[in-house]
């Protein structure tokens, strides 16, 4: 099945205050690992502050912390590992270049970075105009998201806050009617347009957009209430 993407520039978006991240220990050179390791327990905001000061160790720690999530989002939207590799690199380089403009009062580092990633991925897919929407891939994405794979393996210093926030999102997503939850996941994490989802599921476009609208709105409303309760 193929889907046509509409044109248009990416919309500027402001993330919410959410914290998450992933630390992956790989074969990074030993000497550098010493410098990066001291930053493994540093907060996300501090790493961005370090990048704004052009601290190479902060940049390395930042990439290590978020690479799996950024690459994951790029893969989900594009469906191609090679293209996702390039997009994920672009996302990190954009974050590096814009680190001095990051404002922690407007949203979390993770959301800031993932929004950069999603916009870059959608722009790349849109530039290719016709793009195959892989039913099996999108099905796996919905399953993995609803299963809570996004909460696994989080070992940052902010893990407690991170997991609480992400778990709250997942709980609210699971509480939505399944058709709304699936439309939301396909649209946000799969990068699908309403037209693509409608074609894939054999539904009217208005129905799909209605599901996305109702799902996102209820998710946000429920989370706002939860946030107020936890901060009270």
């Amino acid at each position: 099945m193929t889907g046509k993407r509409t044109g248009g520039a990416a919309v500027s978006r402001r993330p919410l205050r959410r914290r998450l991240g992933v630390i992956q220990h790989d074969d990074w050179p030993v000497h550098h690992a010493v410098g990066v390791a001291r930053l493994d327990s540093v907060s996300d905001d501090a790493l961005v502050a370090g990048m704004a000061m052009r601290d190479g160790d902060a940049a390395a720690a930042f990439v290590r912390r978020f690479e799996r999530r950024v690459f994951g989002l790029a893969v989900h939207v594009t469906g191609q590992r090679s293209l996702a590799d390039d997009i994920a690199q672009v996302a990190f380089t954009r974050a590096w270049a814009a680190a001095s403009t990051y404002d922690g009062r407007r949203g979390s580092v993770a959301n800031w970075l993932l929004t950069i990633t999603r916009n870059a991925a959608i722009d790349a897919v849109r530039a290719r105009r016709l793009y195959p929407v892989d039913d099996e891939r999108l099905g796996r994405l919905v399953d993995a998201t609803m299963r809570g794979d996004g909460l696994a393996g989080d070992r940052t210093a902010d893990a407690a806050i991170t997991n609480a926030d992400a778990a709250a999102v997942l709980e609210r997503l699971r509480a939505l009617p399944i058709e709304q939850a699936r439309a939301v996941v396909l649209a946000v994490l799969g990068g699908c347009t309403g037209e693509e989802i409608a074609e894939r599921d054999g539904l009217a476009l208005g129905t799909v957009k209605g599901r996305i609208r109702l799902g996102l709105r209820r998710l946000r409303t429920d989370l706002a209430s939860w946030t107020e309760d936890t901060e009270r």
Partner: peptide
């Protein structure tokens, strides 16, 4: 804001070797 919330539960995928 709702879309931003959903981004926080992005399922991670291991990038190719040498990504960093």
């Amino acid at each position: 804001a709702g879309a931003d919330d959903v981004l926080t539960i992005t399922p991670p995928v291991d990038p190719p070797a040498g990504f960093v």
